[in-house]
Simulated assay, not measured.
Amino acid sequence: MTTAMVAAGRRSVVDHENGPILFRAFPGGYEPAHSLTSAQRALLGAFVDTDETTGSIGGNWLWFRAAGLPENREGIAALLRTYP
């Protein structure tokens, strides 16, 4: 369900819900030594897929930083390519 909310790409969701969803998906922060779970991959993929139309990554860069993740679409896409 949370991935669907991100994929919906509505501005109110971006502003008020995507950041907390992201933070809950990475409660202790992203740890490069551990593989992403399938749920984390799906969530980050939804952010990448909708970012051009919603600005969801750039609009939530503080949440991405707090979770220890890249703060831009290219960085998230590269991270997803790292874990096939």
Rank of each mutant, 00 (worst) to 15 (best):
N72S: 07
R24E: 13
S56N: 15
Y30P: 03
W63S: 14
L44F: 11
A25Q: 11
G68C: 05
S12N: 08
G29T: 09
G59D: 08
R65I: 02
P20E: 05
A7R: 15
L79D: 09
W61L: 02
S35D: 13
Y83W: 10
E17C: 00
T2M: 05
N72R: 12
E52I: 10
E52L: 11
E31Y: 02
F47E: 11
E31F: 05
L69R: 12
T2S: 08
G28E: 14
T2D: 12
L69N: 10
D51V: 08
G75N: 01
L80C: 09
A66K: 15
G45R: 15
A4G: 13
L62T: 13
G59N: 14
G45E: 13
A42G: 12
A77C: 00
A42S: 15
A7I: 07
S12V: 11
A42L: 14
A46V: 02
H34V: 06
A42T: 13
I21M: 08
V14C: 06
G68Q: 15
A66Q: 15
A25P: 01
A42H: 10
L36H: 08
L43G: 04
V6H: 02
M5L: 14
I76Y: 00
L80Q: 07
A66E: 14
A78K: 14
A39C: 03
G55L: 06
F26H: 09
S35V: 07
R81H: 09
V6Y: 03
T2H: 05
G58E: 12
S56H: 06
V6T: 12
P32M: 09
P32Y: 06
D49L: 10
T3L: 04
G55K: 07
G59F: 03
V14Y: 04
R10Y: 04
A8K: 05
T53G: 07
M1V: 08
G45S: 15
L43Y: 13
D49W: 01
R10E: 07
L44R: 02
R73L: 05
G28P: 00
A33S: 15
L69M: 13
S35Q: 10
A7L: 12
E17K: 03
G68W: 04
V6D: 03
F64L: 11
F26M: 01
N60P: 01
H16W: 14
R24V: 05
R10W: 09
T37H: 03
V14E: 09
G9D: 09
N18F: 10
V13W: 07
L36W: 09
A46W: 00
R10A: 08
M1L: 08
Y83C: 08
R81Q: 14
E52H: 04
A67F: 11
E31G: 09
T37M: 05
G9M: 06
S38G: 05
T53C: 04
G19L: 11
L22D: 05
F23R: 15
E74T: 12
A42Q: 15
E17V: 14
E71G: 10
A8V: 02
I76E: 02
A67R: 12
L36C: 06
M1E: 09
E71P: 00
G75P: 05
P70C: 04
T54C: 07
L44Y: 07
E31M: 12
S38N: 10
H34N: 12
I76P: 01
P32Q: 11
L79H: 10
G58T: 06
D49F: 01
N60L: 00
S35F: 01
G45C: 07
